[in-house]
Computed example of a mutant assay.
Amino acid sequence: MKDYTYMMSRQLKWLFYLVAVFVLGYGFTDYQPFFAGMILGAGISTFNLWLLQVKINRIGQGVVDRDEKKRTLGMLTRFATAALAAVIALQYPGIFDMIAVIIGLMTPYLVIIIDYFFHHTELTTRKRGE
């Protein structure tokens, strides 16, 4: 479980950095609707990733504690927050770019894939016993 906690904190850290870059892009460029959409999409998607990781931790602890209660990962909650981002972007098209919101909603998956490749190459380059 220690590796999972480390992975979770690493991915969330990179997502926060990415959202900070989007905020800088919003503040210092002429593409405010695009970066506002990226901030909205990435912010909601970061919340969804955090929520998923918390629920996975709870399920893992339930298995450890032999809790037989059936639990779900909350797919409906994550879909609802993504739909909320889309509704906000549709309601305020002058402020948020819809394409940027959709791209922002996909950023955690890109971060997870990149994190996997960096972490996998780190593990494969180590020798046994180090």
Rank of each mutant, 00 (worst) to 15 (best):
K13G: 06
T121R: 14
T5L: 13
L49T: 08
D3S: 12
K2C: 07
I39Y: 05
L51F: 14
I114H: 03
V54K: 07
I39N: 00
R128A: 13
L110D: 02
H119T: 15
I102K: 05
L15A: 05
V19G: 02
F28V: 14
D65M: 09
Q32L: 00
P33D: 01
V19R: 06
R10A: 09
R128G: 04
N57G: 00
S9K: 11
V63S: 04
A42K: 01
T107V: 15
I114G: 05
Y109I: 10
F118Q: 13
G74F: 06
K55A: 12
F34T: 03
L15C: 09
K70L: 11
F35N: 03
L105G: 04
L90G: 15
D115P: 01
T107D: 10
Q11T: 08
D67L: 05
S9H: 09
L49M: 12
S9C: 06
W50R: 08
F47H: 00
I95F: 09
K69C: 02
T5W: 07
Y92P: 00
L24Y: 12
E68C: 04
Q32V: 00
L15D: 02
L105E: 12
R78C: 10
G62W: 02
M7W: 06
D65L: 03
L110M: 11
A42I: 02
A83N: 07
L73V: 15
I103M: 10
G74V: 01
V54D: 11
M75I: 14
V64R: 07
F117P: 00
L123I: 11
A86H: 05
F47R: 03
D30H: 12
S45K: 03
Q61E: 03
P93L: 06
P93K: 07
Y6L: 11
T72H: 09
G129Y: 09
R126N: 08
I39L: 05
F16C: 01
G27R: 08
M38F: 02
P108D: 09
I88E: 11
Y4T: 08
G60T: 04
P93R: 06
A36L: 00
G104A: 02
M106C: 07
L123N: 07
K2V: 13
M98C: 03
W14G: 00
Q11L: 10
P108N: 08
G43Y: 03
I99C: 03
T72C: 00
I95N: 07
K127M: 08
V111T: 13
Y17S: 01
G104H: 04
T46H: 05
A89D: 12
T77Y: 12
H119L: 10
K13Q: 06
L84N: 08
E68V: 12
G60M: 11
K69Y: 09
K69N: 11
N48E: 09
E68I: 10
A85G: 04
F35K: 03
K55L: 13
Y92A: 04
L73E: 00
L90Y: 05
